[in-house]
Design a protein around this nucleic acid. Structure first.
Lengths: 246, 246
DNA sequence: GTCGACCACTAACATAAGTTAAGTTCGGTG
DNA sequence: CACCGAACTTAACTTATGTTAGTGGTCGAC
């Protein structure tokens, strides 16, 4: 990825917006971002039920979408830089989940009236926005499959494999791993288990030489084993090939 | 719901498209459906990986979206009449799951070039289509929460409560329940458990007077208990109030 | 009518995961 | 340097769920 484009949006759509959009459209995309904000400590950016008139694009760091139920926190989605975290709020207006920052993050806010203008006048860009929410849904479906099918070790392996792939799309993955500021409690919340059991699983995957997760750093020890354990097939990320526009 | 509108589309968007669309737009919506097909036996309508040039709207009956993994079937979504089952295929082109009929169904096919025309010329209708896929994603998120948070009885209770509510939106729910052609194996596939365990759960919910599921018929015995067991709050279905358009 | 297929149902046993209750490491702060 | 809280770690025990192996019922095909 070259950096001839805006730092706020160049990672949009898995970094593929460069290929799919004209120079003019990219400029328009960049113009969507209004204010930019940084949080250095964990912060609840938006709450379930909030009625919003802007959406959030993640520029740097990690944010989670969470649903609290019965006093417990459930992570229903994780985002990497370039993700339009709550674009769905443009049409749905009301949020069905919280949006929380993890570690240090930088986010951009996109006012809904600017999105409205894009919808009216820029069909290609509008299509990209729709596409982005559909990718989100495809990831949701994969998570449902993972939760229905896999036991805790598989779920963690799948999560690691997915994040590694998604970070790789936007040039943020390392050769042997990536940095991940999630605590074991948060990994548990994303895998539908408890922190105690997640600790067992993390230990097991480390000892069996699959992946080492410690001090905010993920080191993949056996890529093949990781994929198999997590039943990971990246097809659902629709990452191969150019974005098709018809 | 009056039946002054097309039988193919009058249940679209939880039956609320009547309120949100003009007469002209409703006529356009009806015109989207090309061919109509009926399957009386279980049938795989579309397969994962298929590249499609039309999308499917469910007119009557039940269809499921399933992902096979490691020889096991996982239901990642269930649809009621009025649902646009695979509208996402318009933008994504390739399916990340199978679409299968359950029991007897009637479906309509919408050619993608007609959707393309709507996008170019009918911003309100286009917005409705986007909205429909966003509702889908919201349900996915709720399923993720349910799978992460609830044990098998809660998952079944949640599933029953959700389907009852969704069928009620389109005037297909009864006073005390609804008909549901899912086998215990299929209920298990939708709740991420085994048919043996699902049988235990069905029996338990029947004996504790929560809900009776037998011979394709769901009879809710204790509405309040059902909602509590399933941690069901219908807010995520965005069913209240008129569709907001800006 | 009988056969086979599919579905509902049950029992006995094995295992993954939740719960409770610690203790330990580690980074930051006074 | 000592303390504190948060994250991590472990152990012992309980429970939910998976697995294997079956039984019986219903219904349609032949």
């Amino acid at each position: 990825m070259t950096d001839d484009s805006c730092p706020y949006t160049r990672r949009f759509l898995q970094g593929r917006s460069r290929d799919a959009l004209s120079k003019r459209e990219r400029t328009l995309l960049e113009g969507l971002v209004g204010t930019v904000e940084r949080f250095t400590a964990p912060h609840t950016i938006l709450r379930r039920g909030d009625v919003v008139d802007q959406s959030t694009i993640l520029i740097e760091g990690t944010v989670a979408r969470v649903i609290y139920e019965d006093g417990k926190r459930h992570i229903v989605a994780l985002h990497v830089p370039g993700d339009f975290v709550d674009l769905h709020a443009f049409a749905l207006k009301r949020l069905d989940h919280d949006v929380v920052s993890i570690g240090s993050v930088q986010i951009g806010y996109v006012p809904h009236d600017r999105i409205q203008k894009v919808l009216e006048k820029e069909p290609t860009l509008a299509r990209m926005l729709w596409y982005s929410t559909l990718l989100d849904a495809a990831m949701h479906r994969e998570w449902i499959m993972k939760l229905e099918h896999l036991s805790a070790d598989g779920r963690l392996a799948h999560l690691v494999a997915e994040l590694w792939q998604r970070l790789d799309f936007v040039d943020l993955a390392g050769e042997n791993g990536f940095s991940l500021p999630l605590t074991q409690q948060e990994l548990a919340d994303a895998c539908g288990t408890t922190s105690i059991h997640m600790n067992r699983v993390v230990k097991k995957l480390r000892e069996t030489g699959v992946v080492d997760i410690s001090r905010g750093q993920v080191t993949v020890l056996d890529k093949q084993a990781l994929k198999e354990l997590g039943a990971f097939d990246p097809a659902y990320l629709y990452g191969q090939g150019p974005l098709k526009l018809t």
